[in-house]
């Protein structure tokens, strides 16, 4: 689903849309952009911000659903 073994561009349109919510997909994009194309901060800004947003969101969810008191 991340474009790691099979390119995202060859997937069905709806799968492509679903894969946008997959953080690994953006991570792979960043990794290839930097190591293959030598991209700078400007080029990776978009996937990077998406990843950052995901990180903050998931962290908040994780903190909120952790309870110190056992049920």
């Amino acid at each position: 689903m991340s474009g790691l073994f099979t390119p995202v561009d060859s997937m069905a349109p709806w799968v492509r849309t679903v894969s946008m919510i997959n953080p690994v997909r953006h991570f792979v994009t960043i990794s290839r952009a930097i190591l293959m194309k030598g991209a700078g901060p400007a080029e990776i800004a978009q996937p990077f911000l998406i990843l950052l947003g995901t990180a903050v969101f998931v962290l908040i969810v994780a903190v909120r659903q952790y309870h110190k008191r056992a049920a």
Partner: peptide
């Protein structure tokens, strides 16, 4: 960049 992106996975 990865330094700041890996928390996404760890947080999940």
């Amino acid at each position: 960049s990865r330094a700041s992106t890996s928390p996404s996975r760890s947080a999940s």
